[in-house]
């Protein structure tokens, strides 16, 4: 905890002079190491995870490349290599390694990656208001009742067996729905990337951007609702 705290304060102070090496104060031209004194430089808290790995802000990512870059950077920042260095360098390398781990975990997973991009592009989840999917909510609440009835029932009875059959079918349907949502999300991600690649600054492009972000938000939210009830079902019927 203490170490973490030190790092936070440290990088905040250092971030102010990001364009300058914290050690020799020369103008920084290297990415994470000063070209003049070869000291490790902190990854700025302002740096988003895409930039961190030198990737464009796109939702389709070459996972092999990402992994290779992650390993390369992990080696460069690994705290083991800083044991004989100054305390500042140790703190910086530790902080960078931690940031890198979080960045990698986030970008590696397509769902987390999309959530992260939404945060970057549109602020937190709450900033995009989508109308609550009432039909889905009704379905979830109704299903929840069936789950409870099954839990309370004698599982060897006819009623218990009927409830189980129903729940198994529901679970299959929901699994399928979750998959459909993920496919749809993938399509939107492709559309997003294409829009970014075109790089137009027209009002039409802006409308399209907002539409895609909103759709992304909607699917991600609905997927969370479905995922929750599927997990609950799985815990009950195995």
């Amino acid at each position: 905890m203490d170490q973490h705290h030190t790092h936070n304060t440290g990088s905040r102070d250092l971030r102010m002079a990001r364009s300058m090496c914290w050690h020799c104060q020369s103008e920084m031209s290297g990415e994470y190491f000063c070209e003049r004194c070869v000291k490790v430089q902190p990854v700025s808290k302002e740096t988003d995870y895409f930039t961190c790995f030198g990737l464009p802000r796109r939702l389709t990512i070459d996972l092999k490349k990402l992994e290779a870059k992650f390993y390369e950077m992990s080696r460069a920042f690994h705290p083991d290599f800083y044991q004989n260095k100054s305390e500042t360098e140790q703190t910086i390398s530790l902080g960078n390694a931690a940031t890198l781990n979080t960045a990698y975990r986030t970008l590696r997973d397509p769902i987390q990656r999309a959530e992260y991009l939404l945060d970057l592009e549109a602020g937190s989840v709450k900033d995009i208001r989508t109308s609550p999917p009432s039909d889905l909510f009704e379905e979830i609440l109704e299903l929840q009742e069936t789950v409870e009835a099954y839990r309370a029932s004698d599982r060897t009875s006819e009623t218990g067996r009927q409830l189980l059959t129903r729940l198994v079918a529901e679970r299959q349907a929901l699994d399928q729905r979750k998959q459909d949502m993920e496919h749809h999300l993938q399509q939107i991600c492709t559309d997003w990337d294409a829009l970014q690649d075109r790089g137009e600054a027209t009002s039409q492009a802006r409308t399209e951007r907002d539409r895609l972000l909103k759709q992304m938000r909607e699917i991600l939210s609905n997927r969370t609702y479905v995922k929750n009830i599927v997990n609950d079902l799985a815990a009950t019927i195995g």
């Binding site: 989840v125 609550p132 999917p133 009432s134 909510f137 991600l220 969370t224 609702y225 929750n228």
Partner: peptide, 13 residues
Amino acid sequence: GMVGAPECGDVMK
């Protein structure tokens, strides 16, 4: 009133 929390997936009616 039908609301949900997309962060945790809770649903409330």
